[in-house]
Design a protein around this nucleic acid. Structure first.
Lengths: 234, 234
DNA sequence: CGGCAATTTGATATCCATCAATCGGTGTGG
DNA sequence: CCACACCGATTGATGGATATCAAATTGCCG
């Protein structure tokens, strides 16, 4: 298995010198229905991307971290909402300027397409989880997903680095529930079960420690994952 | 709302003159783990794309129809399985030749990226369904999805065309179940409920008639969908 | 007509949702 | 500093939707 970190996507150079914007927790960057004339790159913090039906049901589609691009859509308006979970800084670029900067830069275009494919494969993971996994399995996957992104955004080369096992959960239980297709009470109980089984310890409401990584991975069935391409052979 | 059909994606020209391959129902075109050195375009028939975990759980990711491109991946091997549901003909092209044909053709590249975005938005729909909708709602969405693709692949301009309401279901109940994240018995019962509610009639095991399209759409909550971009202003 | 597979239907079990109560932290004002 | 209120999280009790297991039925192909 590959184990070294990937360099940041080269197409992100298009954001060099772009103006930035700071968001407070809960602040909305993109409201559903807004014109898709701007694209963003996350410089720091965590965002949450979600879609809400007319009847109020909400599905959280992903949590976004440093160097995640924001603005993939085929339509001229966004059909999802993006809001800050933690204080966040993003770089802003008009879509037309972004496209112009990419145009003709073969390497950047290829990197952009590649990033799009990785997003697609993440979605496949999500579909598999929602369709096939139980509540506790989904939560296990989620914790590993957060750990993974923490590792990537901090560029920590060593997967065994102990601090990686302190997972920060800045979002609410309800956000987690809407991400995993569960109710918040079920998320609570599933945390309890993971703790009972000695896979994690709850340090406080927004912080858990992974105490048995191997068992958590086994439960999550993480080898089923598509996502090795996020890492590069070392 | 837009109501005319979109022209086929221009990048599909890259398959002009490509060799074809015929598949019988059940025949595998791409086995999970196979090298991703070929890409395909569907000329006729229906394919099914799925992913199976080590423990045997299978998630059907999509059903594929005419003019659907096959080969989106960031890795050098496919991590999913593609098999024929009906007799199917595909055009085959090596990935390198396909990339070479696209390279420099700005219009084709843009169309390709656009198609990728549409796939992404379809996946968002799927995630919303699996995370938020009940069994009967998912089945309603599924029937409308089949009707929609039937319309697209037959290039039927009029959405009210009555033959569109005869939906063909060539796949098994288990395939449907694995697509919707349900068990086959639940799919059966949900068909029964849709029939009880006079939204459909079961003609035979592989054919249903939509008898109340408006009610089915209401149940599916289809306005929640992202996918207007699959149609073009008429 | 016979036999096998797919589907439907039935009975029951399980998981998760729902509704309700309690707990714990945090901020405010007395 | 403490009382109180408020919000999110946890825990408890119950219900409902779907899974599971089993049987009956239908459809399909020889």
């Amino acid at each position: 298995m590959p184990d070294a970190l990937q360099p940041p996507d080269v197409f992100l150079h298009a954001f060099d010198g772009a103006p930035t914007r700071d968001l407070q927790p809960g602040e909305v960057l993109i409201a559903a229905g807004a014109p898709a004339d701007q694209v963003f790159n996350i410089l720091s913090g965590m965002l949450m991307l979600s879609r809400t039906g007319r009847d109020g049901r909400r599905q959280v589609l992903s949590f976004l971290f440093r160097d995640n691009f924001l603005g993939l859509t085929a339509t001229d308006s966004y059909f999802f909402t993006v809001e800050a979970v933690t204080p966040t800084r993003v770089a802003c670029c008009s879509r037309s300027a972004f496209n112009a900067r990419l145009e003709g830069d073969l390497q950047a275009e290829r990197a952009f397409l590649n990033m799009t494919f990785r997003v697609l494969e993440d979605m496949v993971d999500a579909i598999y989880s929602l369709g096939q996994r139980s509540a506790i399995e989904r939560l296990a996957v989620f914790l590993l997903y957060l750990r993974h992104w923490h590792r990537l955004s901090e560029a920590i080369a060593d997967d065994a680095e102990p601090t990686l096992n302190n997972v920060s959960l800045p979002m609410t239980r309800e956000d987690i529930a809407d991400f995993l297709g569960l109710q918040k009470e079920t998320v609570s109980r599933s945390f309890g079960q993971l703790e009972e089984r000695s896979m994690i310890r709850r340090l406080d409401n927004h912080r858990v420690q992974i105490t048995d990584l191997a068992a958590l991975r086994e439960l999550a069935g993480v080898m089923d994952f598509a996502a090795p391409q996020r890492l590069v052979r070392g």
